[in-house]
Amino acid sequence: MDGPAFAFSIYLAQQRRRSVHTVRAYRTAAERLLAFLTEHWGQPVDRAALARVSAGDLRAYLARRRGVEAAPAGGLTNASAARELSAVRAFLDWANGSGSAPVLKGPRVKKGLPRPIAPAEAVALVADVAEESDEPWVAARDWAVLLLLYGAGLRIGEALSLTGAVLPLGETVAVLGKRAKTRIVPLLPEVRAAIEDYVARAPWPMTRDAPLFRGVRGGALSPGVVRVKVQRARGRLGLSDRTTPHALRHSFATHLLGRGADLRALQELLGHASLSSTQVYTQVDAAHLLDVYRNAHPRA
């Protein structure tokens, strides 16, 4: 298990406080690069040898990953190739010092806008998911989880990482976000009432260290369960394939901005490290207004 990729993953988890998903993805990319270099150079590669990696080596690696050598029409998309390059550059910077990775321009990626859903559709989606369950406590749980996404702007992982320590609920809740950063999120009365109703119905004890949201067997509720429920509901309601749990968070942000929310305040609510991540919602709102204009204005 020991090796550069493993040591890199420990660094990411312990010193950079990256998420489990990021650590796994970056470690896998590092292992792929090491395997490629071993074949490419014809000898084993240790951390010291990574100092030899050139821009040409990285181009050859990305060409292999994108399937250029064997399948010109297949391989990675531009977005996936850009993420792969970012991961291996981070690995090389870790191995040899910040800024040591070869300079290599990545593929151009067109940045898409978040796709919010209309308020009525968001409420209909949440209600449909809850109504689908025959178990009252499960229905209450699903209603509470999805309202946290739409009514408080939480990521699905943030909602499911809450424990019984948040009880009894107040007007706000402390949320552990990306890179282990905690933020304080206000709870609307409707959201707070939904969580309290679920807690009252749940057949499991709500101890401080136990997950707040439970699966049917008592363990932590899986994000995959929530995603499947939302997928089924959007099919029944005829909503777009982009209607996902994360789209509820996008909708929270877009609808607040449309009602005049301050961009800095929205950044704090969403837990964005950079304001640039939040500014994308100004484009979403402008795009929405343009759609309204085109669909409704007689001279559009």
Rank of each mutant, 00 (worst) to 15 (best):
A5W: 00
Y11H: 14
Q15T: 14
R18T: 04
R18F: 14
S19C: 03
A25I: 02
T28Y: 10
A30H: 00
E31T: 01
F36M: 04
L37Y: 12
E39D: 14
L50D: 01
A51P: 08
G74R: 10
N78G: 12
S80Y: 01
A81G: 11
A87E: 03
A90R: 06
N96L: 14
N96H: 14
K110I: 15
E131M: 06
P136E: 09
P136N: 13
A140S: 11
R141A: 07
L146S: 00
L146Q: 01
T163R: 06
A174N: 15
A174F: 11
G177W: 06
T182I: 15
I184L: 08
V185Q: 00
P186Y: 05
E190C: 12
V191R: 00
A194R: 01
I195W: 00
D197I: 11
V199R: 00
A202S: 12
M206P: 11
M206A: 14
T207N: 11
D209N: 07
L212P: 01
R227S: 07
K229C: 07
H246S: 05
H246G: 04
A253Q: 01
T254H: 07
R259Q: 15
G260Q: 02
L263V: 08
R264C: 05
L266F: 02
Q267K: 02
Q267V: 03
S276Q: 06
Q279G: 08
Y281N: 10
Y281R: 05
T282M: 05
Q283P: 14
V284I: 04
D285Q: 13
A286S: 09
A287Y: 07
H288C: 08
L290K: 12
R294N: 13
